[in-house]
Design a binder for these strands. Structure first.
Lengths: 220, 220
DNA sequence: TAGTCATATGACCTGGAGGTCACATTCCTA
DNA sequence: TAGGAATGTGACCTCCAGGTCATATGACTA
C-alpha cells in the first residue's frame, strides 16, 4: 500500500504518477521497470517517490488494486442480457464484457496482464491471490454446469478450469495486442469481424469441453 | 554464432560453459541473465567469455540451435506407430513425442521456452524465425486436414493455427513445470495418469476444431 | 632455444539500477 | 507572524550490469 503522503496529494498529481508507472510496466514489465524513469516521466523527484511508495512493487500492487476496483464498478453496471443463460453463454458474455473493459483501459490492462501472465509464472510473487480468485470463480462455474447437466459429470474440474483460464487469457491477450494497433480500439473490438472471431475461439473451447470427456471415455 | 576460439575448446569445457548458460537462462530468462554469473558458474574468466561469444544473446542463439539439432536427431529416429493416421492422431503423436523429448532435456527446454514464450512476445527479437517455422508447419497441417475432409472447410486456417500453437505450448509448459517437481520426470511423463491428462487436453482442442465452425455457422 | 601467435586473465571502465538523507520549501496553526 | 510539521529535492551512496584491454601464459615453429 502506498503511504499516506501519496493519498494526501491532489488527484491530478496522483494520476500523473500512476500514468507514468502504468506506461513503464506496460513497456518493461515489473522486473525491468525503472523507478528512475517513472520519476522522470511523472515530474517528481526521487525522494518524493520513496515518500509515496515503499518500492516499485508497491506501486504495481496499487495499480492492480485500481484495475480490480474499476473492473468491479464496470461489471456492477453491466448485466447479462438474459437471466436464463447456460454456463457457456454466461462465460461467453463475461469474456466479451471483459474485452470491452480491456478496450476502455488498454494500457492498464496491458501492464497488469503482462506482469501477471508473463512474470508471475516465473518469479514466485504472491500478487495478492489475484490469479487464485479467478480460478476459484471458474471452478465454481464448472461445478454448477455439471450439476445442471450442461457439462458431462465425468469432466475433471481442475482440468476444465485450466482450459477456460488459459483460453480466456489467450483470447484477451490476442485481442488486446491486435486492438492496440488500431486507431479506435473500442470500435474495432465491437466490429462484427472481431466479435465473430471471439465467438469462434470460444466455441472451440466450448465444444471441446462439452464433448471431450464422454467421447474420451467412449474411445477407451 | 560463437567465435572460432569457442569451437577450439575441448568438448568438456564447452559443455561446462553451455550448462552454466542454460541454467542461467532457465532461472532468469534472457533479459535478466547475468554474464558475470555465467562466468562464475562455469569457472572461466570474463575476458574468455567475450573471446568465445559476442554477448549473451549470442550464447542463447547457440543454445537454441543446439536444442533444434537435438530435436531433429531425436525425431529422425522416431516414427509414428501407424502410417494412416488422421491429422489429429498425428498431431497428438507429435505432441507426445515432443513431451518425451522435453523430459529428456528438461533444463534446456525450460530455458528456451521461457525465453521464446515469455520474452519473445514483448521484446521484438527475431530469434531466427524459430517460432515462425512452427506456425508454418501447423498451417500446412491444417490445410491438409481440410483437403482430407477431416476438418470443416469453413475453418479459418490462421485461427486454427493459433489455437493449436497456443494449446501445444500451454500443455508442454504445464507438463514440464509439473514434471520438474517429480523425482523421475521421464517416468512420470510416461505414466498412465499423465498420458491420460495429455489426451484429455488434446481432445478438448480436437473436438473444438472439428465441430466449431460448422456448428457456429449453423447457429447464425 | 628464440620468437611468435593463440589463448587466458581480472582489474578496470561506464552506466544505470534501487535506495538514502541533509537540507530547502511550503503549509498550517498558535 | 513566528515556529514547527509535513512535504519536496537532488546529490550521493552502493551494487552490479555489460564490456574492454594490457599483460601473462603456454604451445608450436623456425
Amino acid at each position: 500500500m502506498p503511504k499516506q503522503t501519496f493519498f494526501n496529494l491532489p488527484e491530478e498529481k496522483r494520476e500523473t504518477i500512476i500514468n507514468a508507472a502504468v506506461d513503464e510496466f506496460a513497456q518493461y514489465g515489473l522486473e525491468n521497470a525503472s523507478t528512475n524513469r517513472i520519476v522522470e516521466n511523472s515530474g517528481i523527484s526521487k525522494g518524493s517517490f520513496y515518500q509515496y511508495f515503499e518500492d516499485k512493487e508497491d506501486v504495481f500492487m496499487y495499480v492492480l488494486s485500481l484495475l480490480e476496483r474499476e473492473k468491479m464498478d464496470y461489471f456492477k453496471g453491466k448485466h447479462p442480457p438474459s437471466t436464463n443463460m447456460d454456463t457457456f453463454e454466461y462465460f461467453r458474455w463475461m469474456i466479451k464484457a471483459g474485452m470491452e473493459f480491456n478496450s476502455a483501459y488498454p494500457r492498464m490492462t496491458q501492464a497488469v496482464s503482462r506482469v501477471l501472465l508473463g512474470e508471475g509464472l516465473y518469479y514466485g510473487k504472491n500478487f495478492g491471490d489475484y490469479r487464485q480468485k479467478t480460478t476459484q470463480a471458474l471452478s465454481m462455474m464448472i461445478q454448477q454446469a455439471i450439476e445442471r447437466g450442461e457439462v458431462d459429470s465425468s469432466v475433471d474440474v481442475d482440468l476444465a478450469v485450466m482450459v477456460m483460464d488459459t483460453w480466456s487469457n489467450t483470447i484477451s491477450t490476442y485481442i488486446l495486442n491486435e486492438g492496440l494497433k488500431q486507431k479506435d480500439i473500442m470500435k474495432w473490438v465491437r466490429s462484427a469481424k472481431v466479435q465473430e472471431k471471439i465467438d469462434k475461439l470460444l466455441y472451440v473451447m466450448e465444444y471441446g469441453l462439452r464433448k471431450t470427456e464422454s467421447e474420451f471415455v467412449a474411445k477407451h
